[in-house]
Nucleic acid binder design. Structure first.
Lengths: 258, 258
DNA sequence: ATCAGTTTGAGTCAACTTGACTATAACTAA
DNA sequence: TTAGTTATAGTCAAGTTGACTCAAACTGAT
């Protein structure tokens, strides 16, 4: 939509009016590629917390899939795929996530539409990228195979296409949202202690936070609710369990959902 | 890009592999439409400050274009058009802006990719929407015609497609950015007084702000610089002129530009 | 039973920020 | 010269933040 004009150059639809006949094929030549509309793909940057091998403390991990064909055959890339006609962008991201990693996200938000001319050497592709958070219980069950593997977010190596830049941007966004919005809870289960929330912040922002000040700040946010429950089993005073009562929504797809 | 799979269901490219032959035409039937890839359009929400007719104080205005064909023929819509193959998303937005309104934006940022299934009654369209700020000197020169007209942002009436929702979201984003980031200056020229900055805030946020407190806060931001110049000509003490020294960049397209 | 070790959770205090408000400065117009 | 207007500095109380102290409540070892 959004096809508008002043009655001079443009004609209603993007390509329609010329009655272009386009043959898509994997070996399309340059002329054919130039007349084809840019392909549209959906990708997702998925974040989960998993214990680091060294320290055991939670750290940020991202699942990637290995490319099994050119371009960038053999390199790791973000999970993604085409957009089908019967699903919205967010549904496509969701489906994609499920198909490649077996995961159901607890938070899913559009990140950005990447459409630079030379993102792929073979084709003009516009990628609409989402970012997702999954809970550790989910992440532990996630499919892992020869072609799907989890990586520490700070040790990714060189990825296919412009995916390193996309991950950097997703990380920036995640840190930003964490600092300003109630997002940390989507990394956790329904009940959690304030220390667990702090561990999320410490892992994502890569800093140490003062426990006393942190709990004061978190407790002052309205989206969190005390329960009467306590987490037993530690070698110390049992911490109280809390529950998240807020709703995610900020972007247009989520804003109206009640 | 981002076409990845586990070697089972998917095949490299979205549609390519089946060697589909697709005929695009304005009267394409349902079967043809379903096999065509979703069309990609670029639209822009353009904001400028113009004096209100009633009070004379600056208020937010948006240029719209009239649709000259179905669907929604006769209704007002956001300026937009197709994405060509030789331009990036941002360039397409920029060109579009220039072609429909004659404007050059002083700020341009991606807003969101809208891709709901039923946004257009005739076609599946994914719109990548940008939002732009233009300076009032520019806005005053802007083309206006039978099919291009400026509207007050708070009095738009019913627009084509889902454009009312898009404008609402753009407004929300503008207000957010204004509150947290150095964005107000893009509504103004190179030199400005602190009172002018305050007028921008008051117009966009639709509130009254205390002049003394406002100047204290603004002066504490590093992106602003005192000049030795003063604005003469008022019926009062001449205010000092300031200059904006920061850079816009936050999203991936702008982050690296030095 | 008691004690050492741990984390939870409340509280204190100084530095800083914010909103409401006062006062003076510097111009124009009458 | 004076009234009107906005610019700009400053004060003060309330609220927030970061560094820090300390008691509470558990476990495990002695």
């Amino acid at each position: 939509m959004t096809i508008t004009n002043r009655g001079r150059h443009q004609t209603g639809r993007p390509i329609a009016a010329k009655r272009v006949i386009t043959v898509y094929t994997t070996s399309a030549n340059v002329a054919e590629r130039q007349s084809a509309p840019p392909s549209l793909a959906i990708s997702t940057v998925i974040f989960a917390l998993r214990p680091s091998e060294s320290s055991g403390r939670p750290t940020l991990w991202i699942p990637l899939v290995r490319r099994i064909r050119e371009p960038f055959k053999g390199l790791w890339a973000l999970p993604g795929g085409p957009l089908t006609h019967t699903e919205s962008l967010q549904d496509a991201a969701s489906r994609n996530l499920r198909e490649t990693t077996g995961l159901a996200p607890s938070y899913l938000e559009q990140l950005y539409a990447f459409g630079g001319l030379h993102r792929s050497p073979t084709q003009r592709v516009v990628s609409i990228v989402y970012w997702a958070l999954v809970q550790p219980t989910e992440a532990a069950l996630a499919d892992e195979s020869e072609n799907v593997r989890w990586f520490r977010a700070d040790k990714l190596g060189s990825l296919a296409f412009d995916h390193n830049g996309i991950v950097d941007y997703a990380l920036w966004r995640l840190r930003n949202k964490l600092a300003y919005g109630p997002i940390a809870y989507h990394f956790l289960g329904e009940y959690f202690t304030l220390a667990q929330v702090r561990e999320v912040y410490e892992a994502v922002l890569d800093t140490q936070l003062d426990p006393a000040n942190f709990r004061r700040q978190i407790k002052s946010t309205p989206e969190i609710e005390e329960t009467g429950e306590y987490l037993q089993g530690g070698k110390h005073r049992p911490p109280r369990l809390y529950r998240f009562t807020g709703r995610p929504g900020l972007d247009p797809d989520n804003r109206s959902t009640p």
